[in-house]
Amino acid sequence: MREKFVSITTVGVPLDRGNVDTDAIIPARYLKTVKRTGLGEGLFFAWRYDADGSARADFPLNRPEYRGGRALVAGENFGCGSSREHAVWALMDFGFRAVVAPSYSDIFRNNCLKNGMLPVALKAPEVRVLMDALLAAPGSEIAIDLPEQSVTGPGGISCRFEIDPFAKSCLLEGRDEIALTLTYGAEIARYERERKQVTPWLFRDVPE
């Protein structure tokens, strides 16, 4: 991980859809890059633009009231489907630092955490209230506080969320997870030595 996440206060951008899949977040043709940057251009491409390339005025990301918002509020099972981490890179490249939704696909949630992006899981009725408030008063701000594990929004909305303590500390510190794991080098080597005795056939090299 390279980026820390502590807290943000920002315009909440409502995307009132469930089961938003990663093909919708970033279409496959944008996956041909060998870089992590520049993917914001393709974010929600098919929903942001008409077939003729003009921006759809009613799509939240195109509405001026929501411009600059760094927290996306969406429906359940956000980020389902393909494992493409490009979905997280695209959201971040566009400016998002957090998503608030009732639930996430397992792979998407992991991908967020590895990049310093916070996937906040609130209860479905809490997300509904927040979504309705952001739709009713476009441009309203929400505040996400990771140390406190809280989300506050327009009209006095206030909710707490759960997060794995390890994931939380990694986000707060912007920890390089590989560097941490490499400190377990001796344990990994010992594991390999022991398993070579039990299942030696698993240590054959893949032939050319």
């Binding site: 991980m1 494992s83 981490e85 792979i107 992991n110 997870e177 590989i178 794991t181 490499l182």
Partner: peptide
């Protein structure tokens, strides 16, 4: 994801 691919490559 790709960050995890990198993690497996390295560790």
């Amino acid at each position: 994801g790709t960050s995890e691919v990198e993690h497996v490559l390295a560790t």
